[in-house]
Simulated assay, not measured.
Amino acid sequence: MVALNEVPRRSYTDGATPLEHLQRLSAELGGPQIWIKRDDQLGLTQGGNKTRKLEYLIADALNQGADALITVGGVQSNHCRLTLSAARVEGLDCHLIVEEDLGPEGTALGPAGSNPPEYTGNFLLFDLLGANSVTVLGHGADLLGEAEILADKLRAEGRKPYVIPVGGSNPIGALGYVDCAVEMLDQFAEAGVDSPTIVTPSGSAGMQAGLVVGLHSAGSNIPVIGINVSRTQADQEPKIVDLVDATARFLDLPPVPRDATTGLGDYFGTGYALPTPEMVEAVRLFARTEGILLDPVYTGKAAAGLIDLIRSGRFTSEDTVVFIHSGGVPGLFARTQAFA
């Protein structure tokens, strides 16, 4: 077994993120006791779950002598924002390759559902943080292929680029949430949170896979329910399982049972980053009851899933749920039309 504290790591957050009891939201929904893990308060520009992944990914890049980062994502990518922020902290160049969203029901981009590269939300922050380049491609482009072409170009110029995949979701990045699982177990014990279920957004799957591996390695049976933000259950769960297995192998851990992985695909609507009425309701409810802002792409849709599970009886007043706030709030300001 590879000890996690032996893996190179940078540090971008001072201490653990808060675990808070949402008393007013719990009362409003009349279901389980709801707690929230505030990973929106992680370090780097405006925080978010990718910060944990980047602590390991950036350490790996520096160990390889990298002087430039290349990463990819959507036009409002939280991961791109935080990778760029980490590059600024470390004195590295950073190149972003992003794709525009698809319109509702696969249509061309239109005013109601589109997310063009205008200077709002995260796209504004790419500019303020001074990305060395931002390449905007059409929806469905081969982003990683473009990243490798750019990496080859930089190598030909004598540079040493390091390519980070979508969401930082590979076994190295997932280590951030293996560590988070241990952090949360300590917090549960301190706060007296007994036998909870963890509910988390599930996109590129690094956060969920890391939590599953971390809990398994600690001998915990706490379930992790992912709420998919872009895929059906049939499409998402194999991606999560593959990353769970790869992360466990990286740490030389015993295999994780297949039934530890759940990714519910009923709540992403017509596509990734496209607003749904349920997301809008969830964002408003969290803000009105607890003063907590969610984002429209990840936590808003995951919270909508949680609310539906409560209303449909999946969780009762006897249960405890811990919701992971993965950040992404800057994206809210690129989706103001959805709340009009």
Results as ranks from 00 to 15, higher is better:
residue 318 E to H: 04
residue 235 D to S: 13
residue 192 G to F: 13
residue 141 A to Y: 01
residue 156 A to W: 00
residue 182 V to L: 09
residue 246 A to F: 04
residue 117 P to G: 13
residue 235 D to P: 10
residue 266 D to S: 14
residue 156 A to S: 14
residue 32 P to F: 11
residue 80 C to Q: 11
residue 215 L to K: 06
residue 289 T to P: 03
residue 193 V to C: 14
residue 95 H to P: 06
residue 191 A to Q: 15
residue 122 N to C: 10
residue 173 G to E: 08
residue 138 G to I: 00
residue 233 Q to T: 14
residue 238 P to A: 11
residue 196 P to G: 00
residue 4 L to I: 15
residue 228 N to C: 15
residue 205 A to Q: 04
residue 336 T to P: 03
residue 20 E to W: 01
residue 264 L to Q: 14
residue 13 T to L: 05
residue 148 E to F: 00
residue 83 T to A: 15
residue 186 D to L: 14
residue 47 G to H: 03
residue 220 S to M: 02
residue 279 M to A: 13
residue 58 I to R: 09
residue 10 R to M: 08
residue 69 L to E: 12
residue 244 V to E: 09
residue 300 G to H: 08
residue 108 A to H: 03
residue 149 I to Y: 02
residue 178 V to T: 10
residue 47 G to N: 05
residue 57 L to F: 09
residue 64 Q to N: 13
residue 189 A to R: 15
residue 301 K to N: 05
residue 41 Q to D: 05
residue 130 G to C: 10
residue 298 Y to R: 08
residue 48 G to F: 01
residue 159 R to T: 00
residue 338 A to K: 05
residue 296 P to M: 02
residue 42 L to E: 05
residue 101 D to R: 14
residue 234 A to C: 05
residue 160 K to Q: 14
residue 72 V to E: 05
residue 80 C to R: 09
residue 264 L to Y: 04
residue 163 V to C: 11
residue 55 E to A: 08
residue 196 P to W: 01
residue 321 V to Y: 06
residue 144 L to F: 13
residue 131 A to R: 00
residue 246 A to C: 08
residue 257 P to D: 10
residue 116 P to E: 15
residue 118 E to L: 13
residue 79 H to K: 04
residue 229 V to S: 01
residue 145 G to Y: 03
residue 55 E to M: 05
residue 38 R to G: 07
residue 233 Q to S: 15
residue 77 S to D: 09
residue 285 L to A: 07
residue 269 G to N: 12
residue 224 V to S: 07
residue 64 Q to G: 14
residue 84 L to R: 04
residue 268 F to W: 10
residue 296 P to D: 06
residue 163 V to Y: 12
residue 249 R to L: 12
residue 265 G to P: 09
residue 47 G to K: 03
residue 132 N to Q: 13
residue 332 L to C: 04
residue 240 I to V: 15
residue 26 S to Q: 08
residue 28 E to H: 09
residue 81 R to F: 12
residue 209 A to L: 03
residue 179 D to S: 13
residue 13 T to P: 02
residue 324 I to A: 06
residue 285 L to N: 09
residue 188 F to K: 14
residue 338 A to F: 02
residue 281 E to F: 12
residue 229 V to W: 00
residue 306 L to V: 02
residue 214 G to C: 07
residue 150 L to R: 07
residue 16 A to W: 04
residue 103 G to M: 09
residue 195 S to N: 15
residue 97 I to R: 11
residue 214 G to D: 03
residue 237 E to H: 05
residue 21 H to N: 07
residue 331 G to N: 10
residue 160 K to W: 01
residue 150 L to E: 01
residue 4 L to T: 15
residue 124 L to S: 06
residue 11 S to T: 12
residue 4 L to V: 15
residue 272 Y to A: 10
residue 272 Y to K: 03
residue 125 L to K: 02
residue 43 G to M: 04
residue 153 K to L: 06
residue 10 R to H: 08
residue 53 K to G: 05
residue 121 G to V: 02
residue 6 E to N: 10
residue 119 Y to I: 06
residue 65 G to R: 10
residue 331 G to I: 04
residue 259 D to Q: 07
residue 227 I to E: 09
residue 74 G to H: 01
residue 140 G to V: 04
residue 336 T to M: 08
residue 74 G to S: 08
residue 8 P to Y: 11
residue 300 G to F: 04
residue 322 V to I: 07
